[in-house]
Nucleic acid binder design. Sequence first.
DNA 1: GCCAACGTTGGC
DNA 2: GCCAACGTTGGC
Length: 137
Amino acid sequence: MNYWLMKTEPSTYSWDDLVTDKITCWDGVRNYQARNMMRAMKKGDLVFVYHSVKQTSIKGIAKVVKEAYPDSTALKGDWSMVDIQAVKPVGKEIALQQIKKDPFLQEMTLVTHSRLSVQPVTKEQWERCLVVSETKI
DNA sequence: GCCAACGTTGGC
DNA sequence: GCCAACGTTGGC
């Protein structure tokens, strides 16, 4: 089981949109590092959904329901997408500020490589986030 | 709206 | 292969 974090601009596609859709294909990723992260995802892996730009916080948990396959929205190039399904919202949103202040979360990719839109999360970071956000799976 | 950080493009 | 110019992301 691996853990991940995916960023989205809520004005484009929000956590609430995912809850409504239940399942969505995560298309439009055009960054090789992010693409490679998606290719490493396995069915059943869990994903934090993070809102960038506005709110800047972790909103909810989703799971991978379909592993990487070609991104049909890509007119050229070798791009992939995965399907994720909403699992549940976090108990309390985790603000970026909070992550930056938390001594256990300093190594999160959100802090160290903030621009990467699909990021790995360690088991320790994942569990810390569940504690901080008062979330039970 | 600004701007730093980063990624991509293209001329040489 | 280098690097300047440019575009994008995303925090503030």
